[in-house]
């Protein structure tokens, strides 16, 4: 292609400057404005919004978000890896249908699907009706951390399965034969060859699940009954309820920093694995 085709990207550069870069700068700017001034045109710069965050209630909200996100991600990984593995072992034709079956629920409104869990898990829900039928004690899962984690796993599992499946499907079958040939049993084939080779897929999956899990405000709102605040709920409240954009922006900045940091950490972990060197076995 000719050099001049690069001009095709110029409109997009203008577009992203206006709709991505400026808004991000706006958040940064607002996070540094003193809220007491009221008039954003005659603002005074301050770090008060950030200082405000370092009080126990807000710190514990962030800690709680991280805690729930970590558990959800872990659950997705533990459920998703074997699933991706099972799918990857199927006949190629069957594989694409199975993957399609996986994506299909995402085309039905996420809120609806999540809300349906209330019908299942609620006090008079389907699960308890079934338990009652078998004369078992009812369970009260709704509005607990477990319900939130379950909702997250339900919503984000495909994000874990798809990249891991891609990574497993890419593993050269000859490498597995080679490991067997060199004396590795099934367990060793997995731990020494398959797992390290699928690590990039795992990392992508972990990032793709962790990101929405740490920041969602819908799932805790619906399944946690709004009584469990996560950082996402806190930001939403600042913008739509209390109208404190300045503190809301500072919270957004903090969340972004956490996310960029965790991506950076994960990526570093990945490149370490790839770089080689004598690995401690």
């Amino acid at each position: 292609m000719h050099e001049s085709t690069k001009r095709l990207s110029y409109p997009y550069i203008v577009w992203i400057s206006i709709i991505i870069i400026i808004p991000m700068l706006l958040i940064f700017l607002y996070s540094l404005i003193d809220p007491s001034d009221g008039n954003p045109m005659a603002f005074r710069l301050t770090i008060d919004n950030y200082v405000k965050f370092f009080s126990p209630i807000y710190i514990s909200t962030l800690a709680r978000s991280l805690w729930i996100a970590v558990w959800s991600t872990l659950a997705c990984l533990l459920l998703g890896y074997p699933l991706a593995w099972v799918i990857a072992q199927c006949h190629p034709k069957k594989q694409s249908s199975l993957l399609l079956l996986f994506i299909m629920p995402m085309w039905i409104n996420m809120l609806l699907r999540t809300y349906a869990w209330i019908s299942i898990l609620g006090k008079n829900g389907i699960l308890n009706n079934i338990l009652e039928f078998f004369h078992l004690a009812p369970v009260d899962i709704m509005y607990t951390d477990f319900a939130i984690i379950l909702g997250m796993v339900y919503n984000f599992l495909p994000f874990m399965v798809l990249p891991i499946h891609t990574a497993i499907a890419k593993v050269d079958k000859n490498l597995i034969d080679a490991a067997r040939d060199l004396g590795a049993n099934n367990r060793q084939v997995f731990s020494k060859v398959v797992f390290p080779l699928t690590l990039p897929g795992i990392i992508t999956g972990v990032i793709m699940v962790f990101l929405p899990a740490v920041s969602t405000f819908v799932i805790p709102q619906l399944l946690g009954g709004g009584q469990f605040m996560m950082i996402g709920n806190l930001i939403e409240k600042q913008f739509l309820l209390t109208g404190n954009w300045y503190f809301g922006s500072a919270l957004s900045m903090i969340l972004m920093i956490f996310i960029l940091l965790s991506i950076w950490l994960m990526k570093r972990f990945d490149s370490d694995g790839q770089a080689g060197g004598a690995l401690p076995w």
Partner: peptide, 19 residues
């Protein structure tokens, strides 16, 4: 280009609202 992919929806949402 990668920013909207990795940013939480809530951050993108408030950023656009402010814009």
């Amino acid at each position: 280009n990668y920013l909207p992919v990795i940013s939480p929806d809530i951050v993108l949402a408030v950023a656009l609202m402010m814009l």
